[in-house]
Design a protein around this nucleic acid. Structure first.
Length: 181
DNA sequence: CCCTGATTCGC
DNA sequence: GCGAATCAGG
């Protein structure tokens, strides 16, 4: 029963590409696909010519996007940090890649992610036109993606696009919802 | 010390 | 081609 870990099958490479493209770190990818070290992942990434990724995280990125702590507090901080910088009126991208899935602020929407919950899929079932919103801890085997129908031209569905791309006006009231300080 | 990716080099 | 060890950096 102890199958030796199949090396880099097409399936695994595809998985690797998608996760890497999604911005997950090498170590997270290693844990996600399993059977390989982060070094193996990095090595493969380089061999595939995927290196030179765009860093979604700024300086000190490692600790900066520390997830897996206190879901509630993390969510709170995420929202706050997201609306901290002064951004222009037009839909600016504030939180393009949230690490954990945080509760959507109870705005006017009755059911935030009701649809998304029923749609969530694993990385394997995630198609190109499906919402890539991460749900849960990427290092956990329970990690899923939203999987709902993504808006054409965007990686997210209608629900999550609203969270990912929040206009300045919207973000202001969100802070009140968060109830910070 | 935690983490990140990059590179080297024996296998 | 693979990946552990190592390196360089935040």
């Amino acid at each position: 029963m102890t199958e030796a870990v199949p090396s880099w099958t097409d399936e695994r490479v595809e998985l690797l590409r998608r996760l890497w493209d999604d911005g997950l770190s090498a170590s997270q990818i290693a844990l996600q696909i399993g059977g390989v070290s982060r070094n193996a992942v990095i090595g493969k990434v380089h061999r595939l010519g995927l290196a030179g990724r765009v860093k979604p995280i700024g300086p000190g990125g490692a600790q900066a996007r520390r997830k897996e702590d206190l879901s509630a507090e993390v969510a709170l901080e995420t929202v706050i940090v997201a609306e901290e910088p002064t951004l222009p009126e037009p839909p600016a991208i504030v939180a393009h890649r949230p690490a954990p899935d945080f509760p959507l602020p109870p705005k006017a929407a009755p059911e935030p992610v009701a649809l998304a919950v029923s749609e969530r899929v694993t990385i394997m079932d995630l198609r190109d036109s499906m919402c890539r919103w991460p749900m849960g801890d990427p290092t956990s085997p329970e990690f899923r993606f939203c999987g709902a129908r993504a808006i054409t031209g965007l990686p997210y569905c209608t629900q999550h696009a609203q969270v990912a791309y929040q206009p300045a006006a919207e973000r202001k009231r969100d802070r009140r919802v968060a109830g910070f300080r």
